[in-house]
Write a protein that binds this DNA or RNA. Structure first.
Lengths: 396, 396
DNA sequence: CTTGTTTGTCTACTGAATAAACAAAGTTTA
DNA sequence: TAAACTTTGTTTATTCAGTAGACAAACAAG
């Protein structure tokens, strides 16, 4: 329980909190009876009954048939009505667009992916509209319809929703949120891709029920999403998690950020590709995909490239562990696909360097959601927002 | 307002929250009338009146004489009764013990300092008892007496209050909390020195009213205390903030932690002293104090040593800023005394390397509380705890 | 002296949670 | 099969905290 609030406490707050608690309980333990809900929440049976009837009226839950008796009257089972509304989540990558339509539980109902190369903002915007239109039409009729649109971008997003800088897209100061909200008339969330991915993993992936999770989004560069004390930490202006530009070599390679020795120059896809180009029998156009294939075919040189990157990933992970003492570190985004080659050197670097008590209760994982964590994460943001707002507008 | 709670909401919670809100308002704006309190909190006048009368009964506040009228009946001014109890805060350094006695507002009422070299745990414990006894006797009679004892130690403390490892003291697995609680029969908090310092600075120092503060405790080594989203982040087991062992040179100097290139090898007191020993006309026993003196006397070589350390401090600060996007970074502990020589190289390293939007709204400070932040911080922990517990035990 | 304002208390009311009674719908036991 | 016990979910009376508004006391200004 946290009492970090600077506003008045009154019974409306109490009711809202309890209603949310009941809904959450039903969501997580569906199908569940009123009596069992009362037990789990600690609320009085009568209170639960009255809150449940409100939730039924709002169509957020529904009654299914009677359940099995445990020696008395058979309970009426309650189901979370995950189809009461839908959420759209978009992951804007450097060379692809991924859109998902999820229900309120985060299940993917439909998805659409498009690839491209070298498009301008205006051109991407057209494709973005297409995908959103498609997903909107794909949503079945429901009481609440599309409850929101979330967008994850590979760049820094201010707390006001403005995309300040997305270097790999060459975007600068773009207020996509306003554009989308005007066009679609629903709440829009714009979020950094790593933050969204971290949230996606916490809700649906490897990080379920954990409080302190560090999600390392390793693609061309490295961004990091921080789940601390159970919630996303975004920093003062929303720019936290730029661990890709953490110095790991004081006089190292020059980075375009103006600094030297940044982690992502050694441990991200860009390192792999530029090192591959230097190989004596280098592939013409090295990509993560064809390098993976070469490694699978047993190319020792390429395997060593992966191992080197894995080792450097371990260096950064070591820093992360010393800094945050997390419960879990998740490697996500494109580089996660090379788990097979990266995992061992990464782990061995870490085990040798981190103190024993830091490694206690620590999990190192590769993303379970593969390429979907960001899209699912932003979609979940909208759903969360919807509940926060909806539970306030009570049926009067 | 945060609704991150998994327990029932009932009117007791409401009352407790509002009572705490009223007390906080009176604490921060004393002297203040009931009417003004009602205005500031948004609570009803009657509600404030009733909560105030309870707080009066508990002697946590008191009524002073009538204030000046603003065109009507003169208000009765309320004062926070900071002398209703006292708190003891102890900073266990590598070669000193500092104990402070504070009132409930955090004002220092008495303090005692002792220096020593190379004492065992048992020997230090004797001195520790002496200081606590002295401060206990120094506390004037008050309704609540000593409300708690806080201890800051230069090492890792588990969430259960056990000191796992304090390398510079050569302590290992010491359960000081149990010892002190048994002896003094009051709540005891053991906390890492950097965490305590961070909290001290937030409450009483440079970081007042800020939400995201990184406190860099630079002494022999470097520890970091993290105030994120307004509260101390301690990590999964309480071992966060070991930024001293963040790698900044992949193949750098060997550290006793088993790793190479740790930040504290380059940017802490140990770097300064070992570099000083290599100077052609090195002082016999280089210490921070006599090196400072040499620098003040214009010794170019020594000044350059400080500048080098300042530069390396900047490297780590750059990482901190990229990782956390904080509102404020505070350099504290012994090295803060060399502000004069460290500040410029540190700032210039940072300005050149950090992106413009990271530097927006960012303050770099040296500690205002000088050597007192840790002791004040742990003392404040006890006070906070006292209020949390006390407001629950209502006058029935 | 009158009028208007501010302060703080008091009373009646509201809304939410709770405890306990109760009816309905089962199961278990003799 | 009937009586006794259990579980579920609703209903009723009660408690408790906050609110609105009336009110008296204390003061300022014309």
């Amino acid at each position: 329980m946290k009492l970090t609030m600077n506003q008045t406490w009154n019974q409306h707050v109490v009711k809202k909190g309890n209603k949310s608690l009941v809904l959450e309980t039903i969501k997580d333990h569906s199908p569940i009876s009123r009596a069992e809900t009362a037990n789990r929440t600690g609320l009085n049976k009568g209170t639960v009954s009255s809150l449940v009837s409100e939730l039924l009226e709002e169509q957020l839950i529904s009654e299914s048939g009677p359940g099995v008796s445990s020696g008395g009257r058979r309970p009426v089972m309650l189901l979370f009505n995950q189809l009461a509304g839908y959420s759209i989540g978009i992951d804007i990558g450097v060379n692809y667009l991924l859109g998902v339509l999820t229900d309120l539980q985060g299940n993917i109902c439909d998805e659409k992916r498009e690839s491209y190369t070298d498009l301008t903002y205006e051109e991407i915007k057209v494709k973005l509209f297409d995908i959103i239109d498609y997903l909107t039409n794909a949503a079945p009729p429901s009481p609440y319809g599309i409850v929101g649109i979330g967008v994850g971008v590979p760049g820094t997003v201010s707390n006001t929703g403005e995309i300040l800088l997305a270097p790999n897209l060459e975007w600068k100061n773009i207020h996509l949120q306003a554009v989308l909200e005007r066009k679609y008339q629903v709440p829009v969330v714009i979020e950094n891709e790593a933050n969204a991915g971290a949230y996606g993993e916490k809700r649906f992936g490897a990080g379920k029920d954990l409080e302190d999770i560090i999600y390392v989004s390793a693609g061309i560069g490295i961004g990091v999403g921080l789940i601390l004390n159970g919630s996303l930490y975004k920093g003062n202006n929303g720019f936290s998690g730029e661990l890709g530009h953490m110095t790991i070599e004081v006089d190292g390679k020059k980075c375009r950020c103006g600094n030297k020795g940044c982690w992502e120059l050694y441990a991200a896809e860009q390192a792999l590709l530029s090192n591959a180009a230097k190989l004596p029998d280098a592939p013409d156009q090295p990509t993560l995909e064809n390098l993976s294939k070469l490694a699978d075919d047993g190319d020792e040189q390429v395997i060593r490239l992966f191992e080197q990157v894995g080792d450097y990933l371990g260096v950064g992970l070591n820093n992360i562990i010393n800094i945050f003492n997390p419960q879990q570190v998740i490697i996500g985004n494109r580089m996660a696909s090379a788990k097979k080659w990266l995992r061992d050197p990464l782990i061995s670097r870490m085990v040798n360097q981190t103190l024993w008590f830091q490694q206690k209760d620590l999990q190192i994982q590769f993303s379970e959601l593969s390429t979907h964590s960001t899209a699912l994460g932003v979609a979940a943001f909208s759903v969360e927002n919807f509940f926060k707002v909806d539970l306030q507008n009570q049926v009067v």
